[in-house]
């Protein structure tokens, strides 16, 4: 992957993710979240997993981000107090974890000399693998999604007395 593309995309994704985390207004944060998802999808495309990128956009941006926006709208407070303060302890823990992960990455020597294989993957291949090798997880995921969907409905449904 091209270094230039990588660095641009990195900056974009990280910036929007930071915005999603740090912006005081909730709706702004949700929208920035969607942007960061798009950035990640571009990443996937750059890394040769275009299908995953498209799935990402479909699911994350199309469903999750929208769901978040809807929830924000449903739980919106009239007094306009959408401001959330920051807890600096949490920030410290996050930074510590980041340091730890970096250190873990740098400590592993085998990562340095890794080379990329330029074998692309086609949708056909993905489809065959899914239905041939990964049928079981596929069906389970289907059940899971059904259960989640029904569950969320029941949760949110208002009791009519």
């Amino acid at each position: 992957m091209n270094i230039a593309a990588f660095s641009l995309l990195t900056i974009f994704t990280l910036a929007t993710a930071a915005a999603a985390a740090l912006l005081p207004r909730l709706i702004h944060a949700a929208l920035c979240l969607a942007l960061s998802f798009i950035g990640v999808a571009a990443f996937y495309a750059l890394l040769g997993a275009e299908f995953v990128g498209l799935v990402q956009i479909l699911v994350y941006v199309g469903a999750v981000a929208v769901l978040i926006v809807f929830t924000i709208l449903l739980t919106h407070r009239e007094d306009g107090k959408g401001v959330s303060a920051m807890n600096w302890g949490g920030v410290a823990v996050a930074i510590a974890v980041f340091d730890g992960l970096l250190w873990a990455i740098l400590k592993t020597p085998s990562l340095m000399g890794a080379t990329a294989n330029s074998e692309p993957i086609t949708v056909k291949q993905i489809g065959i693998t899914l239905t041939a090798g990964y049928m079981w997880p596929l069906q389970c995921t289907g059940i899971l999604l059904t259960a989640a969907f029904i569950g969320a409905l029941i949760l949110v449904m208002e009791e009519k007395r």
Binding site: G89, G90, V93, A94, A96, V97, G100, L101, W103, A104
Partner: peptide, 13 residues
Amino acid sequence: LRAIGLGTLALLI
């Protein structure tokens, strides 16, 4: 959650 985060970090290290 913060406690969990720190704990996991410690385990990782």
